[in-house]
């Protein structure tokens, strides 16, 4: 199999990064202040204007209940971003603690914890999230937790690896001789050094988590209707692609654009980080 070329720092043209950041800023603005972009309500129905194509009155058209699709896409930014961000934050924090515990609590603990971690890591993330949701039940908070649980093992492994490197470094050995306890060592020396690569991995993982959020919402586990959420909108528009393409295309484009922007920006940050640490 041919390997895909790895994006090198200089292979990434600057305009694309700038564009990605512009998109991200707009998205955050839409999530925080949707009123800046649209004055229309995302949930108000109007039977008289049902299923209108994109046009001057409704930029993205209307759905079967006559709701403005542009307003729904704009208002949909908040639940999508919040759940995506929340799950990744949860995964990073919990994964870091798990990885640190594994690295610093001794050989037996390391074997047990990493054994469990590797088993879970072997399962597809979306499948794990679905399993968690089957136990937790649906809802946005549960989707957040489920995705976090599915992403956690990757971060745990990374933090453990970084921690092992740092553990054997001179300054940690000095800390040991100075009589510092394992907790002090973990949080004062090991964690800060593992943080860089962790955050870089998190920034690319954010894109993945956004896709998972949309996928789970698409399957009906996430936001409760009539809340506008991109995955839910995609699911609602799915059967109508032949008659009303705009119902599926715009929320789909919003998801794609967000994930691409997050990934491009994340890769750029990763590249800069690698350059800095390498140089």
């Amino acid at each position: 199999m041919k390997r895909l070329p790895v994006l090198r720092p200089r292979a990434l043209p600057r305009p694309s990064v700038a564009l990605a950041w512009t998109v991200l800023v707009l998205l955050v603005l839409a999530a925080a202040f949707p009123g800046l972009f649209t004055g229309k309500s995302p949930i108000e129905i109007d039977a008289a204007t049902a299923l209108r194509g994109p046009g001057p009155g409704h930029w993205f058209g209307t759905d079967q209940l006559g709701r403005d699709q542009f307003a729904r896409v704009v208002h949909g930014a908040r639940p999508s971003l919040l759940v995506g961000l929340g799950s990744i934050a949860f995964a990073v924090v919990a994964g870091a603690l798990y990885g640190l515990a594994s690295a610093l609590l001794g050989r037996t603990a390391d074997r047990v914890l990493m054994g469990i971690n590797d088993i879970v890591l072997a399962l597809p993330q979306l499948l794990l999230a679905l399993l968690a949701l089957a136990i937790l039940g649906s809802g946005q908070l549960n989707v957040m937790v489920a995705i976090a649980l599915a992403f956690l093992p990757g971060y745990a492994r990374l933090v453990r690896a970084e921690a092992l490197v740092v553990r054997n470094s001179g300054y940690v050995e000095t800390a040991v001789t100075l009589g510092q306890g394992p907790f002090t060592r973990a949080f004062r020396h090991v964690l800060p050094n593992a943080l860089g690569p962790l955050l870089v991995l998190a920034s690319t993982g954010f894109g993945m988590s956004l896709i998972s959020v949309s996928a789970l919402s698409f399957l009906g586990f996430g936001a409760r209707p009539p809340t506008p959420e991109w995955g839910v909108m995609l699911s609602e528009g799915r059967g109508l692609l032949q008659t009303a393409w705009w119902l599926g295309v715009f929320p789909g484009a919003a998801i794609t654009l967000t994930v691409v922007a997050v990934t491009v920006a994340g890769r750029a940050a990763q590249a800069r980080f690698t350059r800095r640490t390498a140089g």
Partner: peptide, 14 residues
């Protein structure tokens, strides 16, 4: 959910 009854229900909810 059959026949898009969930979306129909959103209309009634409004």
């Amino acid at each position: 959910v059959r026949d898009k009854r969930d979306i129909l229900g959103q209309g009634f909810q409004a």
